[in-house]
Design a protein around this nucleic acid. Structure first.
Lengths: 135, 135
DNA sequence: GTTTACCCTATAGTTTTAATAGATTTTTAA
DNA sequence: TTAAAAATCTATTAAAACTATAGGGTAAAC
């Protein structure tokens, strides 16, 4: 299941992308419009900024704004930052790989092989979509 | 992320499917071979039985056994029983649908549309695999 | 000096992952 | 026939991790 963090983060990105002027938008505005707990959104926007998706400005007229063209923001990157691994098991994760304690041979593990396919199919979807594609 | 319940359940099903004689196998044997907490596995096997995948027999020579041909066990059914919804958001779930509190129009929701595609791609994978296919 | 993002901490709630203890049913053997 | 043994079944609950949110203070920009 998608965490609310991811859902909120996606909605915020879409909201900012639809602001074509790229002027800073206050957290409070996004929170209100998208029905999101302001404090929670605050931390989400912060991680989006730290990961290079957003810029911010403090003080009057400040807020968050998209730093890149939505067409240049692949959903794979967004999902990995917000939700974490796209894979459902660490042993099939490209960016967050971890071996299983038990499994002596991944190639012979039924779960591994099945989840590889699931990962690939999800990856196909995310790779073929940029932020611009979902506006 | 896949829960351990699902992972263990899948491994147990595969273990039983590989026993071609379909004779009862004790929980303790599966638990030991697959490195699973026996009591945890006990409850997992129970739900698999209650959902029509397994049969059981008590007493000496008892245990759990597959009740159907592995080729007749679609992974969609297994995943839904063990892991729950295949969709990442309730509003795109076929079997566990729920509307979002916020979202006034699903067709216009970016998250909804994206997650629909993710669900469909995952569904493709699960639908095209039976238990027999992952042995 | 006001407005806004930034940062840290805490906490209630939920889910996951078991551990514990015993009840029930079936088979086997005396 | 009866008792013991073997196994599943049931219920409770506890630890740990994670999720979502709130509070309050700090720092920077205007």
């Amino acid at each position: 299941m998608l965490s609310k963090k991811t859902k909120y983060g996606l909605k915020a990105l879409v909201y900012l992308a639809n602001r074509e002027d790229r002027q800073p938008v206050q957290i409070a505005e996004i929170a209100e419009q998208e029905q999101i707990s302001q404090k929670f959104l605050e931390s989400i926007l912060l991680t989006l900024r730290k990961n290079g998706f957003l810029g911010s400005r403090k003080g009057k007229g400040g807020g968050y704004y998209l730093i890149k063209d939505p067409a240049d923001i692949p959903m794979t990157a967004v999902m990995r930052v917000l939700e974490g691994p796209i894979a459902m098991v660490p042993c099939v994760s490209l960016n967050f790989y971890e071996a299983c304690d038990d499994c002596p041979d991944e190639d012979k593990c039924s779960v591994h092989r099945l989840m590889l396919r699931v990962r690939d199919s999800a990856l196909d979807v995310y790779r073929s979509h940029s932020l611009a594609d979902i506006l």
